[in-house]
């Protein structure tokens, strides 16, 4: 008999089970591809789950137009290489109104260009299940999130409508207009994700690896000057520093960390020593107590 499964093989099997359930029981699922490391793992698991066929769902990227340029290039290359259909949606009203993180602030930008845009795309295509890469270890309010998380017709998350999840039996029944967010990576940690990326040789955006990049120090965060849209304050001069990113989002809102980790092995070693959570680098999380949860209730992923 083959030897018993190690924890990473068990996590992988559980995620594949969830992806197959999603494809089987929902009429129009979609994979929310946000280009980051978690999405890369999610996509890899989807390829595994349905092999030798391709995943029976499309990819959706909500583009705020403020993502790192490297992310967009990576996104388009991966979709082409894998021959998967990629839908890209940007909030047209937000675009017309010129909403951006610098002019309108992180909260408005995230609300209009991410949360609203996601709802628009889900409604437009009639997706009843949206698969995402969120993990329970990211933030305390996620620790209680279900693997299948129910949303009402206006995409809001109501703690009282969440269903108990026993064994591996998931309740896929939805009322009119309701939809589900599916989180196959719920039980993974950041370290698991990187260990798996190394083991499976999964391609990720180069920004995760340390390199000399032009950054400015702003409000305690290292912000990369990714294009000319970032207005520099009078005393700011971009400096070339060795940095990498633990999470990727809109570049003016995403703090880099100083690092010399240029390989997967170095990243894993760095994480094993690290004692801060990955979302610490996200400007949007640091509002009033429980702000992540409030945004989740409003429909943020």
């Amino acid at each position: 008999m083959p030897v018993s499964l190690n924890f990473l093989e068990q996590l992988e099997a559980e995620s594949i089970h969830v992806l197959r359930e999603t494809a089987a029981v929902f009429s129009n699922p979609v994979l929310l591809y946000s280009i980051g490391k978690d999405s890369s793992v999610l996509l890899h698991l989807a390829l595994k789950a349905f092999h030798p066929a391709k995943p029976p769902f499309k990819l959706l990227h909500v583009d705020t137009t403020w993502k790192f340029r490297d992310m967009i290039a990576f996104r388009d290359r991966r979709a082409r290489e894998l021959g998967l259909e990629l839908l890209v949606h940007t909030n047209p009203e937000g675009l017309k109104a010129g909403i951006g993180p610098i002019t309108h602030g992180a909260a408005v930008h995230t609300d209009v260009m991410k949360t609203e845009a996601l709802k628009q795309a889900l409604d437009h295509h009639g997706f009843d299940a949206a698969i995402g890469g969120a993990r329970r270890d990211e933030e305390p309010s996620r620790a209680k999130e279900r693997i299948f998380s129910r949303r009402n017709a206006s995409h809001r998350w109501d703690p009282r409508r969440q269903q108990p999840e026993l064994w591996h039996l998931y309740n896929n029944r939805l009322g009119p207009g309701e939809s589900t967010r599916v989180f196959p990576l719920s039980n993974w940690t950041e370290l698991d994700v990187w260990t798996y990326i190394a083991q499976e040789e999964i391609p990720v955006v180069p920004l995760y690896f340390a390199a000399q990049r032009p950054v400015v120090e702003r409000d305690g965060m290292l912000i990369m000057v990714d294009d000319s849209r970032l207005p520099l304050r009078p005393d700011e001069v971009p400096q070339e520093r060795w940095v990498r990113f633990r999470t990727l989002g809109c570049y003016p809102l995403t703090g880099a960390v100083e690092s010399r980790a240029t390989t997967l092995e170095a990243i894993i070693a760095e994480l094993a020593d690290s004692r801060t959570s990955e979302r610490q680098g996200r400007a949007i999380d640091h509002g009033a107590g429980g702000s992540m949860e409030r945004r989740k209730a409003e429909g943020y992923f």
């Binding site: 620790a143 107590g289 429980g290 949860e293």
Partner: peptide, 10 residues
């Protein structure tokens, strides 16, 4: 506080 995730509950 570490274990109580949800603001409404808190």
């Amino acid at each position: 506080m570490l274990l109580d995730g949800l603001q409404a509950e808190r």
